[in-house]
């Protein structure tokens, strides 16, 4: 809450001391991720283009973008967007269509990083994580273990809401990763997932912000939790004995998108091209363990860093791709049902 205020104040301060260099306002999710973006992407872009990057933090609220676009007063030039919001925003005309010819064509990117209205920024994952010191005889390996409170006693953390929780519940119920969305689309499948959640409900602690599950693990508040892999890695680098389970992880991409009507469209596209340079993507992965979106970057990343990326083949064997299209269609109903389930 304070950070956006500070950054908008900075924005005003920068505007007041207006100088000749063009400015590009880039909106990210802040934290360690935002800092890594500055080092890996913004600074090289400032050097090559002579433009100045003003970073603004937000929490994914598309209402801000919608209000700007509808009022035709767009002050954000590039926004880091999650995939369901990108699909929806693209349908509803919040984002410019990408001119791929200016980015060296679609072939330079992973197929999943290509979208009508967005360019993949990096790949991240929601993983199962636990404190190794708590399970000396070996930790949980699957979501079925996550549900097994006898073998692995202690509270469980999951993200508040239907997204992710329902997928993990079906994986715990023995559904193969490839079939999860097929099953969840049926009435029976959704019932099955909610039944599983009901079973675990007394042990569940729901998190809202990405920092919470890590803090809970460290404070011994939960024994096992779902968490963003980057957050776990940051804690591990500080010497915490945290482990990540890649089997059954749910990966997705964040995208760069340009709000419709941005006055700096061309500069924005030049920035996105810079962020797609393999060397810069490799530098980003070293700072933040999120996977690159251009295949050429992989060869430039060292083996130790690769071990912790969600995009590394060994980590992807039993992983599941988050299906933004499924959630665009079923999201309203399932989230409503989740609210009803939680209120029961």
């Amino acid at each position: 809450m304070i950070r956006p205020v500070v950054s908008s104040l900075l924005l005003i301060a920068c505007a007041a001391t207006a100088h000749a260099a063009p400015e590009l306002v880039i909106v990210n999710f802040g934290g360690a991720n935002g800092a890594a973006q500055r080092k890996a992407f913004y600074e090289p872009f400032e050097r090559t283009s002579g433009a100045k990057v003003v970073a603004v933090e937000y929490n994914g609220e598309q209402a801000r973008v919608k209000a700007m676009v509808e009022a035709r007063k767009v002050t954000w030039d590039v926004v880091e967007v999650e995939s369901p919001d990108l699909s929806r925003g693209c349908d509803e005309g919040l984002y410019e269509r990408v001119d791929w010819s200016k980015l060296g064509g679609k072939a330079a990117y992973l197929p999943a990083a290509v979208h009508d209205c967005g360019v993949g920024a990096f790949m991240w994952s929601t993983v199962m994580a636990y404190d190794t010191s708590r399970f000396p005889g070996g930790g949980p390996k699957t979501w079925a273990d996550f549900w097994d409170v006898k073998r692995f006693p202690g509270k469980r953390g999951l993200r508040k809401g239907a997204r992710y929780a329902l997928e993990f519940a079906l994986l715990a119920d023995g559904v193969k990763p490839a079939d999860v969305y097929k099953v969840l689309a049926t009435r029976d499948g959704a019932d099955r997932a909610f039944r599983r959640l009901t079973e675990l409900a007394p042990h569940l602690q729901w998190w809202e912000a990405g920092a919470q599950p890590v803090q809970w693990l460290v404070a011994n508040d939960v024994a096992i939790t779902s968490a963003y892999n980057g957050r776990i890695d940051a804690a591990r680098r500080e010497g915490r004995p945290l482990a990540v389970v890649w089997a059954g992880s749910l990966y997705d991409f964040d995208y760069w998108a340009v709000p419709k009507g941005s006055p700096n469209r061309d500069l924005a596209l030049r920035y996105i091209a810079t962020a797609g340079v393999p060397d810069h993507q490799a530098a980003f992965a070293r700072l933040m363990p999120y996977g690159p979106t251009v295949p050429q970057a992989v060869a430039r990343i060292d083996a130790e860093t690769l071990k912790h990326l969600p995009s590394t083949p060994a980590n992807m064997t039993d992983a599941l791709k988050f299906d933004a299209r499924f959630w665009a269609d079923q999201g309203e109903v399932l989230e409503k049902r989740f609210a009803a389930w939680a209120a029961r």
Partner: peptide, 12 residues
């Protein structure tokens, strides 16, 4: 497309 997107959301 913004117009049709609004319709799609409403119907969904």
């Amino acid at each position: 497309d913004a117009r049709i997107g609004g319709v799609a959301r409403r119907l969904n």
